[in-house]
């Protein structure tokens, strides 16, 4: 693991991964969207609103997954002080926040016609909203400190503490009575028809590869920001 702590080596791999991730994301969208929107069947109960699921569920999974990446990277940063780990967490946060926000909004758009309400304070919806606020808090905290390193550590600690919310998001529908349905993916496999699993997985793939591709772009920006700081410092010292 520590070999990857070298930013130059790490970016070499990231840059090599980038065209593949970007290409596969576009490919998944091109194949997946027509299936999700046109050829896949309506649901026997929900009718055409089932199509919202092909955005909502991948967004929800990404919201949790990106946070897990953020929390794990933050732990690596706090323990081994690898700056690359912190930069991965920092670059991931806005992407994860977008996915979580998208999950919440598409969920409302499904809830109003199906449940009969935009929002309820059940365990699943509430814990997902908390996840969204954790992302926002992390983003805000990273820039709130005068001292860069203290801000980094505070943000990393928040990401780590907030990880307690992840199992709650995941298991809320099993532990407590919720209005939200149980997970469509369990140990027994998918509880939805194969014709619906195909577009769902394609959209999941599209979102996954999108995350990797945009993460690489954001990593480049973050590393450039660090280089700019050093260059400015040197310039001020010599000039």
């Amino acid at each position: 693991m520590h070999k990857f702590a070298n930013p130059t080596f790490f970016m070499k791999i990231a840059n090599a991964v980038f065209p593949w991730a970007a290409g596969l994301s576009v490919l998944c969208f091109i194949v997946g969207l027509p299936i999700a929107l046109v050829t896949s069947p309506p649901d026997y109960q929900q009718g055409e609103t089932v199509r919202i699921m092909y955005v909502h569920v991948p967004a929800a999974w990404m919201g949790s997954m990106v946070y897990a990446v953020m929390a794990a990277s933050s732990a690596v940063y706090l323990i081994w002080r690898h700056t690359v780990a912190h930069i991965i967490a920092r670059a991931s946060a806005p992407i994860g926040a977008m996915f979580t926000g998208l999950c919440l909004v598409t969920g409302m758009l499904w809830g109003e016609p199906m449940w009969g309400t935009w929002w309820v304070w059940d365990a699943r919806l509430t814990s997902m909203l908390i996840l969204f606020f954790l992302y926002l808090g992390y983003i805000a905290l990273g820039d709130a400190f005068e001292d860069q390193e203290r801000g980094d550590r505070a943000a990393a600690l928040l990401a780590l503490v907030g990880s307690v919310n992840l199992p709650i998001v995941h298991f809320s529908v099993e532990w407590w009575n919720t209005l939200h349905q149980s997970s469509i993916l369990s140990m027994q496999g998918f509880s939805i028809s194969t014709e619906m699993v195909v577009p769902l997985l394609l959209m999941v793939g599209a979102f996954q590869f999108y995350y990797v591709a945009v993460l690489v772009i954001r990593l480049r920006a973050e590393l450039l920001a660090a280089k700019i700081r050093t260059a400015r410092f040197n310039l001020a010292a010599t000039g």
Binding site: E48, T49, R51, V105
Partner: peptide, 26 residues
């Protein structure tokens, strides 16, 4: 969309908007 147009299409529109916005800003 079987009468659900005002729920299905905004979901996809907001999805596209979110993905494009984060990509563009990055």
């Amino acid at each position: 969309m079987g009468g659900y147009a005002r729920f299905v299409w905004p979901a996809y529109a907001l999805g596209a908007a979110g993905l494009v916005a984060v990509l563009w800003l990055s």
